[in-house]
Design a binder for these strands. Structure first.
Lengths: 223, 223
DNA sequence: GGTCGATTTTAAGCAAATCTTAAGAATTAA
DNA sequence: TTAATTCTTAAGATTTGCTTAAAATCGACC
């Protein structure tokens, strides 16, 4: 795990750097915003996590955060800063930071928060869950309340698509495009048939998993 | 997005609950550890995020966190607690919590930290708000004071148009053009009929949401 | 290559929700 | 008071989605 620290106070920088090295991380440091951003962007993907001070000579931490997010939406960014207003915290988090630590902080807490961010790396991101439904994309299996439900390929693909888009209505056009690979006008009721099949297999005690939005499409019910 | 709050102080519980509902989340509350854990486990996967107080009657927050993690490694858990020792924070984070907020905290910060955890899933929430009205364009749902109002497609489209043009009068011509896609002369009273329908569904206690500007058109009332 | 079973697609009838029309009632401005 | 505009209602037309069954396609196996 490689971490980049962007911090201008030399004492803090070396303190964290040494501490993290002892914990087995590979650590690079940048003493100002300009070089920090450059290092982060130049080898985008190289770092597994960024520690960024808010107030920096050159480019500010916020700007670094924004630019890094643009280039890479995944990499966790933790702010380390003396600024202590609620607005600052909120602003930083909304700009794309994953956590925000107020100075002075304890090294142990920093370490714990770093571990939280790195937790779950290459751990089963291959499962989709929703309520009592578990979809294992590797094993190509679906479980309802722990017992397996047999789905056909198309049923599986459709359910996966709906689940991945949980929270928004999927239009028939987008469904037919993503699940059936038809990118032009279509005139068929396959979708209805498959929705019907899924409902039959997945609905328990009247609880409908799939909500119909008349005139628009379908979505996973949030209720 | 559905959130479970496990918190025994009634004031805090209802405060957070209402606040989050206003932000468009579905929220459940549990007043003690036993029931909280039960709710979390009974419908594992139902909740997208857990807010947990550390000190609870019944089962402690830490224990809840541990058990929930066991059942579901994905769901984010945020601790809300008065305990303020560094060891506590570290302990909670190591036990599986994703974040740790010390009381008293600001609601805005809580909200921002929740959004961080849900980021990627919650991404691109597309909402229009006006007073006690919340329009979720992704889910194609409308909420008035937190409870859903069923709108048809046309009603929805009309309301969206008015809301997007909040503050200015929408002429019948522009409405028929944008909502009905009629770009030539028309001779119909559909608009009136739909305005009527919207008013019936959305007006509470005489407060009219949609104002008639005689001879011109309609607009969302700014009052 | 042929056969059987499973899966996918098409088609059609039915039911229900939604949209539109139209006409009379109510309201407003001059 | 009057004429124009807007509101309200309800019925008929249309669209949309559900369900079912049968036809077409695919794939494994002999």
């Amino acid at each position: 795990m490689r971490i980049l620290i962007i911090e201008d106070e030399e004492g803090i920088l070396s303190l964290i750097k040494e501490g993290l090295k002892e914990e087995g991380f590979a650590v690079d440091g940048a003493p100002d915003g300009t070089r920090g951003l450059q290092m982060a962007l130049d080898n985008n993907g190289k770092y597994d996590l960024l520690l960024v001070d808010w107030m920096l000579p050159g480019i500010s931490g916020i700007e670094i955060c924004r630019r890094v997010r643009q280039a890479n939406p995944q990499v966790p960014v933790i702010f380390l800063t003396a600024r202590d207003m609620v607005q600052d915290t909120v602003f930083a988090l909304e700009t794309g930071a994953n956590d925000y630590l107020k100075k002075p902080f304890s090294f142990d807490e920093l370490l714990a928060r770093i571990r939280v961010q790195l937790r779950g790396r290459d751990e089963g991101t291959n499962q989709l869950r929703h309520r009592n439904l578990l979809m294992d994309l590797n094993k190509h299996q679906v479980f309802l309340d722990g017992t397996e439900v047999q789905l056909t390929q198309k049923e599986f693909a459709l359910l996966e698509f709906l689940l991945r888009n949980r929270g928004k209505v999927c239009s028939r056009t987008s469904i037919i495009g993503h699940v059936w690979d038809i990118h032009f006008d279509y005139d068929t009721s396959v979708i209805d048939v498959y929705i019907n099949a899924l409902r039959k297999k997945l609905n328990v005690d009247g609880q409908s998993l799939i909500r119909t939005v008349r005139g628009i499409g379908y979505m996973i019910s949030e209720l």
